[in-house]
C-alpha cells in the first residue's frame, strides 16, 4: 500500500517568495494498482512525484510504501528519457542495477521484449524519441520496482508511438503487478491507463476527486468507452475540472 499524506509543501518561487504547491493532499494506492494523477498544468504534479521518489525531502507530512518510507526499489520515468548519452543502451539499463546476479540477464530480456535487441550497443543519441523512451521504460522495470513513478513520460511523442508505448507499459505492468503512480495532464490518457484516477486542484494542489475506472482492458485513449467516460466525468464535474476540460478538448482536436 502506498500512503501519501502531505500536510504542506512549499518552495521558493523565482522572486524568493514561498510558493505553496501542495496542501492537505492525501492518497492511498493499493499494491499492484495503476493510479493516475491528473491536474491542471503547474498544479504541482511533478513536485508530488519528486516527493514520493525521494528527490525532495523538504516537506511536511508522511509518505510510506508498505508502512515505511520508500527507500529503494522505486522506478522513475521522467518527462524526457534522461538516458546517459555516453552509455550504450544496454549499459544505460545496467547502470541502475545493484549487485543482483540476475540483473544483466533481465536487462537483455527486457530490452528484447521492447524490440530493442538490435540496438543494445548503440548510443542513445542515435535512437528516435520513441526508442529512447522504451530504453527508459526498460531501465525503470529492470530493478523490479515495488513502485513505479511516471511523470508524463509519453508527452511530445506522436500519437501512434505514444499508443504503442502505453500498450507496452500496460503489458509489462500486468505481468509484474507493480504499483504505478502515473502523472498526466491528459484526462483521456489517465482514463485509458488507470485503475483509479486522482484529480488534483490548482495550486496548492489537493485531491478533489477520486475515480475508480472499471472499464475492460486493453483500452486505448481512442476507445469509445474511454471517450464516453471522459464526457460523463466532464459533465458531472464541470467546475472542478475547468482546467482539464481545455486540455482534453485540445487533445480531441489533435486526433
Amino acid at each position: 500500500m502506498l500512503e501519501i499524506d502531505i500536510a504542506r509543501k512549499s518552495y521558493p518561487d523565482r522572486g524568493g517568495q514561498p510558493h505553496l504547491a501542495l496542501e492537505a493532499l492525501r492518497m492511498r494506492v493499493r499494491p499492484g494498482e495503476f493510479a493516475c494523477v491528473v491536474g491542471p498544468s503547474g498544479c504541482g504534479k511533478s513536485t508530488l512525484l519528486n516527493l514520493v521518489g525521494g528527490l525532495d525531502a523538504d516537506f511536511q507530512g508522511r509518505i510510506a510504501l508498505d508502512g515505511q518510507p520508500p527507500a529503494g526499489g522505486v522506478g522513475f520515468m521522467f518527462q524526457e528519457p534522461r538516458l546517459m548519452p555516453w552509455l550504450t543502451v544496454l549499459d544505460n539499463v545496467r547502470l541502475v542495477l545493484g549487485d543482483d546476479p540476475g540483473g544483466p540477464e533481465r536487462a537483455r530480456q527486457l530490452l528484447a521484449a521492447m524490440e530493442l535487441g538490435d540496438v543494445l550497443d548503440a548510443f542513445p543519441g542515435r535512437l528516435s524519441g520513441g526508442m529512447q523512451r522504451r530504453v527508459a521504460l526498460a531501465r525503470a522495470f529492470v530493478i523490479e520496482p515495488r513502485l513505479l513513478l511516471m511523470d508524463e513520460p509519453f508527452v511530445s511523442l506522436d500519437a501512434p508511438t505514444a499508443d504503442r508505448l502505453r500498450t507496452m507499459l500496460v503489458e509489462i505492468w500486468r505481468e509484474r503487478q507493480t504499483t504505478v503512480l502515473f502523472v498526466t495532464h491528459d484526462l483521456r490518457e489517465a482514463l485509458a491507463l488507470g485503475d483509479r484516477v486522482f484529480f488534483l486542484s490548482g495550486a496548492p494542489a489537493r485531491v478533489v476527486l477520486e475515480l475508480p475506472v472499471r472499464l475492460d482492458r486493453p483500452r486505448s485513449p481512442a476507445n469509445p468507452a474511454v471517450q464516453a467516460l471522459q464526457q460523463a466525468v466532464l459533465e458531472r464535474h464541470p467546475e472542478l475540472l475547468a482546467g482539464l476540460a481545455n486540455a482534453a478538448d485540445d487533445a480531441i482536436e489533435e486526433t
Binding site: 521518489g53 525521494g54 528527490l55 527507500a71 522506478g75 521522467f78 524526457e80 534522461r82 531501465r139
Partner: peptide, 11 residues
C-alpha cells in the same frame, strides 16, 4: 536532470 536520475535510482 541526469543527477536526478542517479538519485531516483539510489545509485
Amino acid at each position: 536532470r541526469l543527477m536526478q536520475v542517479a538519485s531516483a535510482y539510489r545509485l
